[in-house]
Design a protein around this nucleic acid. Structure first.
Lengths: 108, 108
DNA sequence: TTTTATTATCGTAATATTGCAATATTAATT
DNA sequence: AATTAATATTGCAATATTACGATAATAAAA
């Protein structure tokens, strides 16, 4: 035990969970907000912005990328990361749909 | 090590992360979608709907409740859980804000 | 009051995540 | 080619999560 039983759930459910999980860490939220703040697609100065060691940040970036939250482009010897708008839009729509459906119901 | 360094981040960042983390598991997404589907606030038949043991589901419900995603009301000897619209609305707005800001930028 | 139904908690094993130092990799620069 | 700069990977220790059996707690029903 200890491992998530992903096979019991639909692909869509697993996908939503994966995206949410990636955002489910304050460092990754901070990365997301930094990428949103800077006007240009930013590279390694995320390390200077966030008080965690470089390997830790690299790992967080990897998880965000694996979940499709951000994209990464090689730019010379540095990396250019940026938010994937499509994924954010998908999450936004998901929660919008829930909100809409809840409006029609009386809750406890 | 191993513990998340929440003190390095803002309350808002930690809060967004906590909500996202709660949704970051397929069983909890399935619970959310079930609560959304049934017309009335549903109680213990979540256990019949989701292929996990009762204590596991109770634990997942607790996490969703702690993160403010769902609310729970005692209804006799059973529990009435339902989605907290405010929390969902907050998440929806968060992603909508990101989407809006990204629109004005050229990305990699 | 005993039984039954419903949900929560405890204890525990298996696995995953977080964080970092050390090191590797890669490409530009000298 | 050697150096430098930027990022990724490896290995590992600390901690957290997931899942469930056993059991407790609570309230309705018999």
């Amino acid at each position: 035990m200890g491992a998530t039983k992903t096979d019991h759930f639909t692909d869509k459910q697993n996908n939503i969970a994966n995206m949410a999980k990636a955002i489910g860490h304050p460092a990754r939220v901070a990365i997301l907000e930094y990428l949103m703040k800077v006007d240009t697609c930013i590279c390694g100065d995320i390390v200077n912005e966030i008080p965690l060691a470089q390997p830790t940040i690299s790992q967080h970036l990897k998880e965000l990328k694996n979940a499709g939250i951000i994209k990464g482009n090689v730019e010379g010897n540095s990396m250019c990361y940026c938010i994937d708008e499509n994924t954010i839009a998908r999450l936004q729509k998901y929660f919008a749909t829930i909100s809409r459906k809840l409006d029609r119901k009386k809750c406890c």
